[in-house]
Design a protein around this nucleic acid. Sequence first.
DNA 1: TCCGTGACAGTGT
DNA 2: AACACTGCCACGG
Length: 108
Amino acid sequence: MPSDNFYQKVYEVARKIPYGRVTSYGAIAKAIGAAKSARMVGYAMNGAAAMQDVPAHRVVNRNGLLTGKHHFSGTHLMQQLLESEGVMVEDDKVQNFKTSFWDPMCDC
DNA sequence: TCCGTGACAGTGT
DNA sequence: AACACTGCCACGG
């Protein structure tokens, strides 16, 4: 249904996230044209987590904090995945977030 | 149909 | 600089 369009857009953007990179919910929301619906992005990610095509673990809040790690199977699964990709994570927080950050709109 | 909830973000104090 | 409050919109009950 049309409502899936929103999710579809979120998934589409999230799927574009390069390996070893991370982005914020707000950035994705803005990319899909729903800058004011950053929360919805996270909500959509809930379903995205079940999708292998959508690396939801690469999506964090604007603070670089792994707020959604609690929704993953393991407590540190999200962190483990990020570290596995070369993203330095400490205390559920992405280090060098500024450098590891990837802007979906600036898909350079 | 109405109310509550939530993986955020921005602004105010 | 840190904490608190509000706005936002989709989904479930």
